[in-house]
Design a protein around this nucleic acid. Structure first.
Lengths: 231, 231
DNA sequence: ACACTGGTATCTACACCGTAGGTCTACGAA
DNA sequence: TTCGTAGACCTACGGTGTAGATACCAGTGT
């Protein structure tokens, strides 16, 4: 028992040991965990452990876990650049689409959040970062001469296409990448042969999916279709 | 202490009190819960309670909760009719699309499962009910003269469109349905006015979204686009 | 110098979750 | 009768999100 009265200001480890928790740091760390292990492995406790803080401190920067997930989706979506001053609106939409695809492929585990979270929140209550791309596309299109409703229509068509495409592309994950035979690589040999003959016969076609080309073709069709008669 | 030796065959309540649990009953009940309260409110314990059984009995019919969710998605998707003998393939695709939309609107809370679960499972390991519509569309299209890869391509385009559209349409939920003013009804008055001027100005356009018409237009564009040059 | 105050970090606790493992019961076959 | 087996039930474990109490600490008024 040495100097029982001495109570130095710092004792057993600075309470905010690494750094002073901020919303950005928290969301960045959450994104990292999700990228590595998927959404369902992200828990408040694990996130706090990764940040070297008490779990409850997280609630200072997000009212609950759902809001935290919204925040993660927001940080990813905020990396989507939209140049609303581009005079060639169609080219800019193409560029946005390509960037969106790149983002989705960079964070495949976040895609369920991107497509699903908006279903849970009425539009006006969504995190502002989520609405920014929408507003940006709207200004791009109205500057190009479209009316408001038409711009909205085109925005919806574009992101419908994007969501659909990204979901398609991310499904093309491979069962056993080391296998050389497409049928085995995709695990299709497990299918009851009498029941799914066509599906089984398309092994090589399935294996040679080209996401980038597929998206370009979708954009071709969409942009051509938008040029034809008004809704 | 009366007759300590007496041990009647039925004691405190028939152990399977309501009925003899089956996979169908289990999935139907799970679907009901999800329809009412959403996915995150479905727990094994609550499902068991609703079925008047022990939670652990559920594991006799599904190896784990993820499989149960897959089963729910499967039961919904199995209600999607595809007539692969229809000689007019385009008309049949339209019909499938409309039925899919109707299904999604009937079970909006299941849609996250429909679009998300496939991301977690390689194609060949998915529940067979999930692959049935795929095989059916493929036979429809090959009977119509398309090659296998082309049929696959069209299938992907169709379901990309459908997923995108359904996600779009289900976002259009309204914040406060009693309000007459569109701006208030959508809660758009809460947006910082300087930041989202266009979005705010589109309140009435947002409020008058017509999902059925939008889908038809998407189908028009898609089917027209498929008629033009080959990939 | 002191007491007080208000915000922040931490701790404890609660109700619930998914599910591994063991036990009890009922029933068809030998 | 005995046995094997399949199904239902129970208990228990480690985890979850988060409400609420508590501990701390800077800043301010006196």
């Amino acid at each position: 028992m040495v100097a029982p009265t001495a109570r130095p200001t710092v004792e057993v480890g600075d309470p905010p040991p690494t750094k002073r928790l901020s919303r950005e740091r928290m969301l960045a760390c959450a994104l990292e965990i999700i990228d590595q292990d998927g959404i369902e492995k992200l828990s408040m406790r694990r996130l706090a452990r990764a940040l070297d803080h008490d779990p409850m401190s997280l609630y200072r920067h997000a009212p609950n876990k759902a809001a935290l997930l919204d925040g993660v989706a927001e940080t990813v979506l905020n990396q989507l650049e939209v140049d609303s001053t581009d005079p060639d609106w169609a080219a800019q939409l193409r560029a946005v689409a390509r960037r969106y695809r790149r983002l989705a492929l960079a964070h495949p585990n976040v895609v369920p959040l991107l497509v699903t979270r908006p279903l849970a929140t009425p539009l006006a209550l969504r995190p502002k970062g989520t609405l920014r791309p929408l507003e940006a596309v709207l200004t791009l299109l109205t500057r190009a001469g479209f009316t408001g409703p038409d711009a909205l229509h085109i925005y919806r068509a574009l992101f419908g296409l994007l969501h659909g495409h990204v979901l398609n592309e991310l499904q093309e994950l491979v069962d056993n990448p080391d296998e050389t035979d497409d049928l085995l690589r995709l695990g299709l040999h497990r299918l009851p042969i009498g029941e799914f003959p066509l599906l089984r016969s398309l092994a090589t076609a399935l294996a040679s999916y080209d996401g980038a080309a597929e998206l370009e073709r979708g954009l071709d069709i969409l942009l051509a279709g938008l040029a034809t008669p008004h809704p």
